[in-house]
Amino acid sequence: MGATAPMMRLRRPRWKDPRLIVGIILVVASVLMGALLVSRLSETTPVLVARSPIVPGDPIDAADLVVVEMRLGDQTEVYAGTMNSIPAGAVATRTVQEGELLPISAIGQATDVTLRPVVVPVDATVAESVVPGATVELWHTAPTSADSEEVQAVLLVPDAVVRRIDEGSSLGMRSMAVEVLVPSGSVGEVLEVLSKDERLDVIGVPGAHGLAP
């Protein structure tokens, strides 16, 4: 008979083997990190939510907000949690829509707001998209020349924000008016058009939200 092939013996792993120790450490670390992540994602935290649209320049008032518990994960530092975290005299620096979480980035002081309120008379009913907090366009329509019957519409302000709508008296004695917030650099042009009693239309931008000033 030929010589038998030597049998290979499997050595038992030694607990002092560095590779085994490193492997155990990695497994334990991954389990702990996963458990920590799941725990953080399942935790709820208080956050302020707007009851109704808050436009730039509006005071951050508790009456306009409600506290809800939500799972924010790693976004807890992005939103305001309680009124105690809001500085005294704080105002909104951009539009916060109804039902929107109040971002800390939207909280500032009056000096941070570069928009100015202007009241625009409107003869006809405005579109459904023209509501408080909505972004709108202001279009100026005027004759092309002093002796011409042709008119031309020009986009005067592309990013105004509706602050309030005055629908006039119930008897229709007054025309409708829309108070809008316009960039300070455009106030002069808007007032010039209004002083000439020329047509200025407030056009809604469907789907658009308030823009940061």
Rank of each mutant, 00 (worst) to 15 (best):
G108E: 02
V118N: 01
E137T: 14
V120T: 12
T141L: 06
S129H: 11
A110Q: 09
A134C: 00
A110Y: 01
S129Q: 09
V119H: 05
T111I: 10
P103V: 01
L138Q: 07
A127G: 14
S105L: 12
P132S: 08
V118L: 12
S129I: 00
D123A: 13
V130R: 05
D123W: 05
Q109E: 08
E100D: 15
L101M: 11
G133A: 02
A134E: 03
D112A: 08
A127S: 15
D123E: 14
L101D: 06
E128R: 15
R116S: 05
A124W: 14
T114A: 13
A106E: 08
W139T: 01
G99N: 14
V131A: 11
P121Q: 11
P117C: 10
I107Q: 04
V118C: 06
H140Q: 04
E137F: 03
Q109T: 12
S105M: 05
L115R: 07
L138H: 06
G133D: 05
T135H: 02
S105I: 00
P117M: 10
G108V: 07
T114H: 08
T114C: 04
E100Y: 02
V131K: 07
D112S: 12
S105D: 13
W139S: 00
L115V: 14
L101Y: 14
V130C: 07
V119K: 07
V119L: 10
H140Y: 06
A127M: 11
Q109C: 07
P132G: 10
T135N: 13
V120E: 01
S129Y: 02
A106C: 09
T135Q: 14
T111S: 15
S129N: 11
V136K: 02
W139K: 00
Q109A: 14
E100K: 06
L138V: 12
I104D: 04
E100M: 01
I104K: 15
E100W: 12
A134T: 01
E137H: 07
A106Q: 09
Q109M: 13
G133W: 03
L138W: 04
L102T: 10
V131G: 00
I104M: 11
E137I: 05
D112V: 06
P103S: 11
L102R: 08
A127W: 00
T125A: 15
